[in-house]
Design a protein around this nucleic acid. Structure first.
Length: 283
DNA sequence: ATGGGGGCCTGCCGGC
DNA sequence: TGCCGGCAGGCCCCCA
């Protein structure tokens, strides 16, 4: 599911329920998601207070006053639902338990945080806070596209000598952390670059356009609360609405949205994933 | 070393 | 109505 904007939206939604709050109880309803949960996860969470919520790439990091950090990944279908806490003028009552509610955190403010994940591609782990960056899942990640160490120069270097399609390169979390299939398609449309173009063959001028477009798309999507397709919800159950801004993703057969272009959005498969693009204006 | 494909799961949708 | 194939926002791991 969730790419960087969706994960950031979830992180922000968790703050009113979790920031500075005690975890009164943790219900862990199965032994694993994609991998086994860490030993005694429920007991190690119980009684800990949340120092803060961070995000790294598509991971949510919950720092606890036990000096451990809960690492959460939503996989494809993971949702985190917050209930029982006043957020502005909204109040979401505790819902009835649902299928695939795998972990439920009961907070000191009587908020409840429910992790629901039908496909179980999600993951949770609990490690010393000082070890988070060294965690196997995080250690190889590239720079944050919205952070200071990501810019045109970085991308130009990363693309150097790359013989693979730019679509695959932008999806490579070791080079840039947080982009997924949807946002790569949208970025390449705005940059007017074909997803099949070899990254190393792009002119300097074309590469230079990409980094600002990546930031622009991600920032717009975060402002919109992410994109909701099948599974993704914000923490209050609301839909994000950036999906209404998709220019190519899921638009196969539709005319290109540019008034100056007569193309039709196509779909091709690259590395097992769908790429949507306009063959006329993306070259 | 790097890139591609398989696999992990469940749910949903379209076609027959 | 029911069954089946195909597809899905991610990412690890194995193989060439």
């Amino acid at each position: 599911m969730p790419e960087l904007p969706e994960v950031e939206t979830v992180r922000r939604g968790l703050e009113p329920a979790m920031q500075d709050q005690l975890i009164k109880r943790a219900d862990v309803n199965r032994p694993d998601l994609r991998w086994p949960f860490p030993p005694n996860m429920a007991a190690r969470l119980t009684g800990a207070r949340v120092r803060g919520l961070r995000r790294r790439s598509k991971y949510i990091l919950v720092d606890l006053d036990s000096d451990e950090t809960l690492i959460i990944h939503l996989g494809m279908s993971g949702r985190m639902l917050v209930s029982g806490v006043q957020i502005g003028q909204f109040y979401q009552k505790h819902p009835a338990p649902e299928k695939h509610d795998h972990v439920v955190l009961h907070m000191g403010n009587d908020a409840r945080v429910t992790f629901n994940d039908a496909r179980r591609f999600g993951a949770m782990d609990l490690v010393p806070t000082t070890q988070v960056e060294a965690h196997k899942l995080l250690v190889g990640l590239g720079p944050e596209p919205l952070g200071n160490s990501f810019d045109e120069t970085y991308l130009a270097t990363a693309f150097l000598g790359k013989n693979s399609p730019i679509k695959s390169v932008l999806l490579d979390q070791k080079l840039i952390a947080g982009l997924g299939n949807i946002y790569v398609c949208e970025v390449l449309f705005r940059a007017k670059i074909s997803p099949m173009r070899k990254a190393g063959n792009l002119s300097k001028a074309r590469v230079g356009k990409i980094a600002p477009i990546i930031r622009e798309v991600l920032e717009e999507a975060i402002m919109a609360g992410g994109s909701s397709l099948k599974d993704y919800r914000q923490t209050g159950g609301e839909l994000g609405y950036f999906q209404h801004s998709f220019k190519v993703y899921g638009q196969e057969g539709q005319p290109c949205c540019l008034a100056s272009c007569t193309g039709v959005v196509a779909r091709v498969t690259q590395a097992g994933r769908s790429s949507f693009y306009c063959p006329t204006c993306q070259t």
